[in-house]
């Protein structure tokens, strides 16, 4: 299975998004480089609104992800509850 990835700016909001992704995607690996955080997982990764809100302690719109996002790889599916990245094979 190919890897999907999500790269976030290394800032304070991203810290909580990373915690949320870790909580919901046990297989994720996290790699810190200057100014950025790279999250990688086999086949699928999901960012859930509920989990991010719980970690942040406030309301969070999935589209707010764009404020801290640098880039991503994988087929994207987004709705009000989550953003999902996946590869079919």
């Amino acid at each position: 299975m190919s890897k999907v990835y999500l790269i976030l700016q290394d800032n304070d909001i991203s810290r909580y998004i990373v915690e949320a992704v870790e909580a919901d995607n046990p297989q994720v690996t996290i790699n810190y480089q200057p100014a950025l955080i790279r999250l990688e997982a086999e086949g699928r990764m999901v960012v859930n609104r509920d989990t991010v809100e719980e970690k942040l302690g406030r309301q969070w719109d999935v589209q707010e992800l764009h404020l801290n996002l640098i880039t991503l790889g994988g087929n994207v599916d987004e709705d009000d509850e989550r953003l999902e990245l996946s590869w079919a094979i």
Partner: peptide
């Protein structure tokens, strides 16, 4: 990321801001 590593705050910031659109 290299711009950040070379102390160029302005460039890394426009770069990542642009790339968030690129995503």
């Amino acid at each position: 990321s290299g711009a950040a590593h070379n102390g160029d705050m302005a460039t890394v910031t426009f770069g990542f801001s642009a790339q968030s659109d690129e995503a």
